Structure formats: C-alpha cells, structure tokens
Simulated assay, not measured.
Amino acid sequence: MKRYKQILLVLMALALLITGCAQNNDNADQGTEPVGQADDQSEFKTVVDVLGREVEVKNEINSMVVTPVPYGSIIYAIDGTMEKIVAVNPDVKSEYEKSLLSTLAPEFADVSVDYVSTDFTVNVEALLNLKPDVVVLWHVQEDDIRKLEQVNIPAVALDQGGGSNLEKTRDNIEIIGKLLNKEQQAENLNQYNIDVEDYFTAKQDQIAENEKPKVLYIRDKNLAVAAGGSFNRQLIELTGGINVAAGVKGSWTGVSMEEVLNWNPEIIYLSNFDSFQPEDLYNNTIEGHDWSQIDAVKNKRVYKTPVGIIRWDAPCAETPLFMKWLGQIQQPELFNDYVLDEDIRNFYKEFLSYDLTEQELNKMLNR
C-alpha cells in the first residue's frame, strides 16, 4: 500500500511538471518581444501623401512643422487648436498677427519661425534637435523630403496644385485629417466646400444668361495679378465674373498699367498680400500708376479681400465663404438667396466653435 502511494505521488509530480512545461512553452510563443512589437505597431500609422508615399508617423501627432502658409489655419479648423504646431513658415506668423487666429489661438504666438524659410525650405539639421513627429510640406520640395527621409523625420507632402484647384485642396485637407486622427472634421470641412461649389455650379446656366463683369484681381502694388493658372481665376469664373487676366500665363504674374487700361476692369479686388486699400486707387496715390480712367475706380467698385483666420486670397478653410463673397459682388441679383453675414457667423460657430462679434465681422469684411 505504501509503495502504491509512492507511485501515485510520482505520477502526480510528473503530471504537474508536464503541465508547467506546456504553460512555459505557451508563454514563450507569446513572450515579451512579440507583445512589445504589437505595442510598437499600435503607436504608429501609415499616411499616404499626394506623392503616393506611404509615410509611417506616430499615431498621436504632438509636434508638427508646417511649411505651406495656409495650412496652419486649416490645421486649426480641423483640430481646434494650434498647440501641435512647433514651427512654421515666417509668412504664417505675419498672417496670424493680423487675423482672427490671434484671438482664437493665442497659443500660436510663441511658435518658432527659425526652422523654415519664407521660400518653404526646411532647416533639416536644426530639426534634428527639435525632433518633430512630422513635417508637412509641398510635394515640390523634393530636396527637403529626401533630406528628412535620410534622418528619419517623417515628411508628408501636400499638393501645391491645391493653390489653383479646389479638389486638390480638399485632398490636402483629407490628409491633414488623417494625420491628426480628425478624419470626420476634415470630411465635414470638405463637404461644406463641395456643397458651396455645387451651389455655384448648379447656377452656371443662369450665369451664362447674365452679363458678366470684367474682373481684375491684384496681388500687390507691383501689379502682379491673378493670371490664367491661379486659384482666384477659378473662383472668379465660378461665381459669375470674367477674369480679364485669364490669358496671362502663370499664377501671380506681373503686368503693365497699359494692359490694365486696355482691359478696363469693372471690378477690382485687392489682395491681402499687400497693404494697399481701395482709397489708394480712388485717390491715385500709388506712384507710377494712373487709375483715374478705370471703370472700377470711377464707379467705386474696388474691394479689399477679407481676412478671417487667414487671408482669403489663398486656398484655405474659409474658401467657401470667399466664393459667397465674390458671388454677391459679381452677380448680386442671382446670388441673393443667402445672407453672407449669417453664413459667416454659422461657419465660425460650426467649424471653429466661435461666436463672431459684430465688430469682428465688420473688420473682416472691411466695412
């Protein structure tokens, strides 16, 4: 009997030993290294940029360098903050100081301009110390992209063609949404853009029946104008005007005063790339120019383009509002089924979570 008990104890010990070995083998199969790899994978995601590059970035982006000027404001419209932006093009900072972002995003005041030049070039060596999670730049910045890849700083390219094309701008916004895990916010912003474009597209037959005013969009006192390849030409024509500089090559292209006199525009828009005002044309105070014989000047139809969270001259989150503003100047009798002030207020409430004051709205619209 005693021997039987001893044999039974040995068998039980063997069973426990076999069970323990099996558990150890299972743990080995699911050991710390594979678990660690899974955790690492969850920290990253892949974003496909406009060049078709699959860029691995952190799942949670906390530091961004942004070279394209309008995209600081677009990031704010999508993310609701500019706290993730650590460096920008110096032109962004100058725009910020005269826009509503100085009120909405005071955190942006201390963002560095030391890592990006006004020509969009990135100081890659300096960025090694900054260690950003991602650099957002134009697709034509091939040298910067290559240098950033060499030092393992993620670079996500946006389409610079977004500067002349509504659809490409929306593609860029979609990429920003993916970077920030704010896909729905980006989709909502893009859908509003599409809805407004569709509104004007649906009225093209009616526009064709109306007399279209001759329009000139001027960038600066040197007479760089919105030419045939410009974003502004697309919007002018979509909203019922004729861009008199459509036959000029390029995007922003210099012309002569003689050409302006020959075109004799009925409406002139002055950009916010320059500080000039309608009164400068009305009072003929720009040296070397004579505006007195231009119909737009004689009829007091010179308009300064609005500034919201950024100047509306460039593709931005407020481009749909820009279209509505242009439409009511160029075809007021046709585009009279919306109230611009209300639409601007609603946009700021819905997309920027901000209630515009009357004073801010009047300042935006230069009245």
Rank of each mutant, 00 (worst) to 15 (best):
residue 2 K to H: 06
residue 11 L to V: 10
residue 16 L to W: 07
residue 17 L to M: 12
residue 19 T to G: 15
residue 20 G to M: 12
residue 21 C to L: 14
residue 21 C to I: 15
residue 24 N to A: 12
residue 26 D to S: 05
residue 28 A to D: 08
residue 31 G to A: 08
residue 33 E to G: 11
residue 33 E to A: 14
residue 35 V to P: 00
residue 36 G to R: 14
residue 47 V to T: 06
residue 50 V to R: 00
residue 52 G to E: 13
residue 60 E to H: 09
residue 60 E to L: 11
residue 62 N to M: 07
residue 62 N to Y: 07
residue 64 M to H: 09
residue 80 G to K: 12
residue 89 N to R: 09
residue 90 P to S: 14
residue 93 K to A: 11
residue 93 K to E: 10
residue 94 S to P: 07
residue 97 E to I: 07
residue 99 S to L: 08
residue 109 A to R: 12
residue 109 A to K: 15
residue 110 D to G: 14
residue 110 D to Q: 15
residue 110 D to K: 15
residue 111 V to Q: 10
residue 112 S to I: 14
residue 120 F to H: 13
residue 122 V to M: 04
residue 125 E to L: 08
residue 127 L to M: 13
residue 128 L to W: 10
residue 128 L to H: 08
residue 128 L to A: 15
residue 129 N to Y: 10
residue 132 P to G: 01
residue 136 V to F: 05
residue 144 D to E: 11
residue 147 K to H: 02
residue 153 I to M: 00
residue 153 I to V: 01
residue 153 I to T: 01
residue 156 V to A: 09
residue 160 Q to G: 07
residue 161 G to F: 10
residue 167 E to C: 09
residue 168 K to E: 07
residue 168 K to G: 03
residue 170 R to P: 00
residue 174 E to I: 01
residue 174 E to A: 10
residue 176 I to V: 12
residue 182 K to I: 07
residue 183 E to Q: 14
residue 185 Q to V: 02
residue 185 Q to W: 05
residue 185 Q to L: 03
residue 186 A to Q: 04
residue 189 L to R: 02
residue 195 D to T: 01
residue 203 K to G: 10
residue 204 Q to W: 13
residue 204 Q to K: 15
residue 209 E to L: 12
residue 211 E to L: 08
residue 213 P to Q: 14
residue 216 L to N: 07
residue 216 L to V: 14
residue 217 Y to M: 05
residue 219 R to C: 05
residue 222 N to V: 11
residue 223 L to W: 12
residue 223 L to H: 06
residue 225 V to C: 11
residue 226 A to F: 04
residue 227 A to S: 14
residue 229 G to Q: 12
residue 236 I to G: 05
residue 236 I to W: 02
residue 236 I to Y: 02
residue 238 L to D: 02
residue 238 L to F: 02
residue 242 I to L: 01
residue 244 V to T: 12
residue 249 K to R: 12
residue 252 W to S: 03
residue 254 G to F: 01
residue 265 P to S: 02
residue 266 E to V: 05
residue 276 F to E: 02
residue 276 F to M: 14
residue 279 E to Q: 12
residue 280 D to Y: 05
residue 281 L to P: 00
residue 285 T to Q: 03
residue 290 D to F: 08
residue 306 P to W: 06
residue 310 I to Q: 04
residue 320 P to W: 00
residue 321 L to K: 03
residue 322 F to Q: 13
residue 323 M to A: 06
residue 328 Q to R: 10
residue 333 E to R: 05
residue 333 E to V: 11
residue 333 E to H: 01
residue 341 D to Y: 01
residue 345 R to S: 13
residue 346 N to I: 08
residue 347 F to M: 04
residue 352 L to W: 06
residue 353 S to T: 10
residue 367 R to K: 04
